[in-house]
Design a binder for these strands. Structure first.
Lengths: 233, 233
DNA sequence: CACATTAATATGTGCATGCATATAATCTTT
DNA sequence: AAAGATTATATGCATGCACATATTAATGTG
């Protein structure tokens, strides 16, 4: 019998969470169905449904029609990362942001990206190298390819006042993308722009974004030494 | 006037998405309120609410009571990462998994973790070093502290057949945690266990998990060279 | 007995309604 | 005119109900 008296869906979720965490309901075990829980908590089935839906979303329970709801065997090792716009990230640290475009060229899509973009592309792609600064110290180095088929106006943009990153966010929103995180050793070039020593381990990410099946941009970001990407789970 | 005839909340979400992607509704712009949309789509406000709530969750719109709903200025750079149990990750690659416990000791909590764990802890903490293999090649190196107050049974576990990682997942589920991703240079010790060269850039992560405010475990994972953590966005 | 058909059931979703709550806008009061 | 109280309004949430849908279990049929 239940001691809770909350009839809010969050309250019910907390109580269900408690039972799972304290192992009253073991992993893999089937839990009472919505109607029974609704009766126990003295609320509508809709409210229980809301709570269970939320738990299912975060991966803690597995729900199947007719089969019922059971506690997940392998609780989620999911983490929602927020990859911030660099300017915002820097400013959130209380430091002043600026960026500098160090290279800009129209060029054919490099063969290395043919596979990643997965479509035949027009010859010209805008290639940019940018350094992002926090308080005048290098914060991250960015290499970016922009598909001019997807964002033709980019051809005439200087990207000196507004960064390509932000411009694209506002002018060529993507529907989906692909992200990968990894580590690289600082090459001489990287060491020079990031004001560090060659060989140092640097945190890096690559992201490709599409709108529909039209690729928009490929970006590779390499952060200055010591950078950590954090997240609550 | 609307051409859509779906009255399912997903259908409405798709139509709203379309308007955002095709910039009918500009970033920052306020969109019609729930009641109006409900009328337009010929459905109940609840249904529009469901669709909008979903869009808000994924960060595409910002909702405030009384102020209404507007298209997010900085669309989400959110990514849901799945940090897999290493065995599953290796097996998903079609390779055979094994692990080897190379060090095990009861010791006081190292000062470095006092701050992270944020509570006074009993003297003894179980410290483990584990190497994870894929097809007999080192895949990742793990250093872990387990709070024996949170998981007392761990004291008598050998962690040779089942890894601490998996054991904890099933026996000391956490309620929340903290994850950070970064890059490290391979030290001599790391290079030796991961069968690589010293100095190489390695992808690493640290995770601390709690149940309530009781810390369970701290783990630091360093992956073999070339590792990438991927995610769809 | 194997296989197709049907029924039962748990979750999923939609609707109408009412009230709760945060907050922008407006109306006091000093 | 500034500060504080009030009101209006958009979203947030709970409810009771009905029906949809997926899936298991039971049943029928050759």
């Amino acid at each position: 019998m239940s001691l809770v008296e909350t009839n809010s869906w969050t309250g019910i979720r907390e109580e269900l969470l408690r039972r799972i965490h304290e192992r009253e309901w073991q992993p893999g075990e089937q839990i009472p169905h919505e109607a029974d829980l609704a009766e126990e908590f003295g609320c509508a089935r809709t409210t229980v449904n809301r709570a269970l839906r939320d738990l299912a979303e975060s991966g803690l329970v597995i729900r199947k029609r007719r089969a019922g709801t059971r506690v997940a065997l392998n609780p989620p090792q999911k983490a929602t990362l927020t990859i911030p716009v660099i300017r915002e990230e820097v400013e959130a640290l209380g430091r002043s942001y600026r960026h500098s475009l160090v290279f800009r060229e129209l060029r054919p899509l490099p063969p290395m990206l043919h596979g990643a973009f997965q479509v035949a592309l027009s010859d010209n792609v805008l290639f940019l190298k940018t350094v992002h600064f926090a308080d005048d110290r290098p914060f991250a180095y960015e290499e970016r390819h922009i598909n001019l088929d997807a964002a033709p106006e980019a051809r005439d943009m200087a990207f000196d006042t507004i960064s390509a990153n932000e411009w694209l966010v506002h002018n060529a929103p993507y529907s989906h993308g692909d992200l990968s995180l990894f580590a690289v050793n600082a090459t001489d070039e990287l060491a020079a722009v990031l004001d560090t020593v060659a060989g140092g381990a640097l945190f890096a990410l690559e992201r490709i974004t599409w709108t529909g099946d039209l690729p928009i941009t490929h970006v590779r970001l390499v952060y200055a030494p010591g950078y950590r990407l954090r997240s609550d789970i």
